[in-house]
Simulated assay, not measured.
Amino acid sequence: MKFLFRLSFVVLCVFFYQCDDAPKKKEISKKENLKSEKIIEKDTIAIDEEKKWNTINSSNTEDFLLAYGKENPETKVIIKTKFGNIKIRLFEDVPAHRASFIYLTKNEYFNTTVIYRVAKNFVIQGGNSDNYLTVEERTKHGNYLIKPEFKKHRIHKYGSLAAAREWDNNPNKLSNPFEFYVVQNKKGAPHLDNQHTVFGEVFEGFDTMTKISKVEVGADDWPMDEIPITVEILE
C-alpha cells in the first residue's frame, strides 16, 4: 500500500513538473524566434543598404556616379558600326557624365541599341532602339537622369559628343544618360550650347561619321536600314 502511494506521488510530481515546464519551453522558443527574426531583419537591412550602392537609382545618382568615376577613370571609348569605328575621348571635367557613359559601357547597355537618328548636316544620335531588351536594360540600370554639367569651353563643335535630354517638362535640363549624339555639322551647333551637356569629342573616325550621315532615313530621321552599335572601353 505504501508502495502504491509513493508511486502515485511520484507520477503526480512528474505530471505537475511537466505542466509547469511546458510554458517555459514555449517562452524560450518564442525568445529564440524573436532573436532569429531580429537577425534576419538586420541582415535584410544590410543587404538592402549594400544593394542601394551597388546599383544606381534616382535617389543616389550623383553620389553613385562620383564614387564610380573614382574607381573607373577610363576616358577613351570606341563605337563600332557596320560603317566603321568612331573613337571618342571623354572629358574629365564633367565627372558625372563621363562616369555614367563608362558605367553603361562596362555593363554593355549600348550593345542593345542602334543609331536611331541621322539628322542630315546636324547630328548622329544613338543609345536607343525599338528592341524590348533595351527597355529592360534601362530599367535594370536605374533609368536615372543626370544634372547638367555645362562648361563655357565645352561647346557644340564638329565631332562633339553630348547627352540627349527631354525638352518638355524638364526645366533643370537633366540629361538622359542612355542617349547621346555627335555633332556632324562641320560648322557645329552653337544653339545647343548650355542646353545639352557636352562630355566628349571624336578624335578618330570622322570618315565613319560621314558615311553614316549619308544613309537613307525615314520618319523622325530614323535610318531605313538598322545601324546596330557596340561600345567598348579603349583606355
Rank of each mutant, 00 (worst) to 15 (best):
68 Y>M: 01
34 L>I: 13
181 Y>C: 00
191 H>T: 14
131 N>G: 07
204 E>I: 01
5 F>L: 15
107 N>V: 09
23 P>M: 04
221 D>W: 06
215 V>K: 04
90 L>Y: 01
6 R>F: 09
111 N>C: 08
112 T>I: 00
209 M>H: 06
25 K>F: 05
127 G>I: 04
182 V>I: 15
51 K>M: 12
128 N>R: 10
130 D>R: 13
88 I>F: 01
17 Y>C: 15
77 V>A: 04
166 E>G: 09
69 G>Y: 11
105 T>W: 01
38 K>R: 10
147 K>D: 14
193 D>V: 04
197 T>G: 05
142 G>A: 08
193 D>P: 00
83 F>Q: 06
159 G>E: 01
34 L>G: 00
112 T>R: 00
165 R>L: 13
201 E>S: 13
118 V>G: 07
198 V>N: 03
185 N>K: 14
166 E>T: 14
111 N>T: 07
1 M>N: 09
210 T>A: 15
222 W>R: 12
61 T>K: 01
184 Q>N: 15
17 Y>R: 00
39 I>K: 13
112 T>D: 15
107 N>W: 02
61 T>W: 02
119 A>M: 14
141 H>A: 01
8 S>N: 09
32 E>S: 02
86 I>V: 15
37 E>K: 14
230 T>A: 11
133 L>N: 12
68 Y>T: 02
128 N>V: 03
113 T>F: 06
24 K>W: 06
95 P>H: 02
212 I>D: 12
186 K>E: 09
179 E>M: 14
221 D>H: 11
192 L>R: 08
121 N>C: 02
153 H>W: 08
207 D>P: 07
172 N>D: 14
34 L>E: 15
